[in-house]
Simulated scan of single mutants.
Amino acid sequence: MPKIVDHDQRRLELVDATWRIIARLGIEGATMREIAEEAGFANGALKPYFPTKDLLLTSAFGHVFNRTNQRIALVTEGLSGLAALRAFCTEVLPLDEERVNEARIVIPFWQKALNDADMAALHSESMSQWHDTIAAHTSAARRAGEVSTPLEDAAVADHLLNMMLGAQIVAALSPAEHFSQDLEGQLDNYLALLTG
Rank of each mutant, 00 (worst) to 15 (best):
F109W: 04
A135C: 05
A144W: 02
L14F: 10
Q9W: 13
Q168C: 12
F61S: 02
Q186I: 10
R86L: 09
A176L: 14
V106H: 08
A30S: 11
E98K: 06
P94Q: 03
S80N: 09
I21E: 06
R143D: 14
E177W: 14
L74E: 13
A172M: 12
A113I: 02
V64P: 01
L173F: 12
Q181P: 02
F65H: 10
A136K: 08
A30T: 12
H137Q: 06
G185D: 05
R33A: 14
L173K: 14
A113T: 10
A39N: 11
P108D: 12
T52Y: 11
I105W: 03
L93A: 08
E152I: 07
M1K: 15
G26L: 09
A84S: 11
M32P: 03
L194K: 05
A121L: 04
R99G: 05
G145Y: 04
V92M: 12
L93Y: 04
A144C: 06
I35F: 07
T195W: 01
A171C: 10
G145Q: 05
R142E: 04
V156Y: 03
A87R: 10
N115W: 09
L160A: 01
I72H: 01
L151Q: 11
E97G: 00
L85I: 04
S139K: 12
M32L: 15
N189G: 14
A60M: 06
S139Y: 03
L57W: 08
L187Y: 02
A136T: 11
A117G: 00
A73E: 15
A45L: 00
F109I: 06
L93K: 02
G44V: 01
D153N: 13
L14C: 00
R10N: 10
A60Q: 07
Q111L: 15
E97T: 12
L122I: 15
A176P: 06
G166C: 02
Y190F: 15
S174N: 12
M32H: 11
D96F: 01
I21D: 03
I169H: 10
A136N: 07
K112L: 15
N162K: 00
N43G: 05
A167V: 07
A141T: 02
L183H: 10
V5A: 09
I72Q: 02
F109H: 06
A23W: 00
D16G: 00
K53A: 13
L183Y: 11
P51Q: 15
A120C: 01
D96E: 11
D153C: 09
S128Y: 07
F41Y: 15
L46P: 04
D6L: 09
E184M: 10
M127C: 05
I27G: 02
F109Y: 14
L46V: 10
V170H: 04
A60E: 08
L25C: 08
P48R: 06
